[in-house]
Amino acid sequence: MPEGDTVRRAATRLDSALAGRRLVRAELRWPSVATVDLVGATVLGTQSVGKHLLTRLDDGRTLHTHLRMDGTWRIEPTGSDRAAARSHEVRVVLADGEWTAIGRLLGMVDVVATADEASVVGHLGPDLLGSQVDVEEILRRWAGAGSRPVAEVLLDQRVAAGLGTIFTAEALFAEGIWPWAPADEVADPARLLLAGRRQLQRSVLHDVRPGKVYGRERLPCPRCGTRITVGRAGEPPQDRQIYYCPRCQAP
């Protein structure tokens, strides 16, 4: 599933194409909102919240989308053949006179009143890519996780929003923490969370992910040379792969 850095870059692309512009085409190819008409509204901007996108309009409505596993947003010149968006995989089309934004294989599409955005993102913890992160609120939620494995808590968007399997593995490796250590035994959870935040920020700015352990099963650890291994965090069918160094991140 795309992580917070990917979603933030998608928000930036949508802003560059649509922010401040009036929609001349708006197709919501999603059953629950198929009859909603957004044409004529001006896009105020798009904000990422964890793995969610909120595209706000000047008429008091917000288009909420989520990429899920396979979703993408791409931008094409309005009037071009690719902007026609004929594929059955297209879920949303938003266009102004110059650019067309095409949402393919999106996993969520909703239209809500901007004042009611909490109905779609209110369950999330603070966004680790937010301009100011409420660390105290995250730690309050962290404390409520008790002895759950730390990797599961990092992946729980209700605690802090934005980390997925890549940045969870990389943040744990950076801090030398065993992924299945009880969360309430982690000495400094704020430090761990801020390590993940810094990695997300670097990826947004430079489009380069850490790549120390994730996806490197059986390859040597960049610190000690031990072969990277992979385990599972969470309960099936929601369990996720977690890569780690069995020596640098020993229990």
Score class of each variant (00 low, 15 high):
residue 173 F to W: 15
residue 155 L to K: 06
residue 178 W to L: 09
residue 151 A to H: 08
residue 145 A to V: 00
residue 153 V to Y: 09
residue 146 G to H: 07
residue 140 R to V: 03
residue 130 G to H: 01
residue 157 Q to S: 13
residue 156 D to G: 01
residue 143 A to V: 04
residue 172 L to Y: 09
residue 139 L to N: 06
residue 158 R to Q: 14
residue 157 Q to H: 06
residue 135 V to S: 10
residue 152 E to I: 04
residue 172 L to I: 14
residue 144 G to N: 07
residue 169 A to C: 13
residue 156 D to T: 03
residue 130 G to I: 03
residue 157 Q to I: 06
residue 152 E to L: 01
residue 150 V to T: 11
residue 132 Q to N: 07
residue 175 E to L: 12
residue 141 R to S: 07
residue 170 E to F: 10
residue 167 F to I: 02
residue 155 L to Q: 11
residue 161 A to R: 02
residue 138 I to A: 05
residue 177 I to D: 03
residue 178 W to S: 12
residue 153 V to F: 08
residue 132 Q to E: 15
residue 158 R to K: 13
residue 162 G to T: 05
residue 168 T to E: 04
residue 137 E to G: 14
residue 160 A to R: 02
residue 142 W to M: 04
residue 176 G to Y: 10
residue 178 W to C: 13
residue 140 R to Q: 10
residue 177 I to Y: 03
residue 154 L to G: 00
residue 146 G to W: 03
residue 137 E to M: 11
residue 142 W to V: 01
residue 154 L to V: 06
residue 165 T to D: 15
residue 167 F to L: 11
residue 131 S to F: 00
residue 147 S to E: 13
residue 137 E to D: 15
residue 157 Q to F: 08
residue 132 Q to S: 13
residue 138 I to Q: 05
residue 170 E to Q: 05
residue 170 E to V: 07
residue 153 V to A: 11
residue 172 L to G: 04
residue 141 R to E: 08
residue 148 R to A: 14
residue 164 G to C: 05
residue 172 L to D: 01
residue 156 D to Q: 09
residue 152 E to Y: 05
residue 155 L to H: 09
residue 176 G to E: 09
residue 177 I to S: 04
residue 154 L to E: 02
residue 145 A to E: 14
residue 147 S to G: 13
residue 172 L to M: 11
residue 137 E to L: 15
residue 156 D to K: 01
residue 164 G to K: 02
residue 162 G to Q: 09
residue 162 G to L: 06
residue 168 T to S: 10
residue 138 I to R: 00
residue 162 G to M: 05
residue 137 E to K: 10
residue 163 L to K: 02
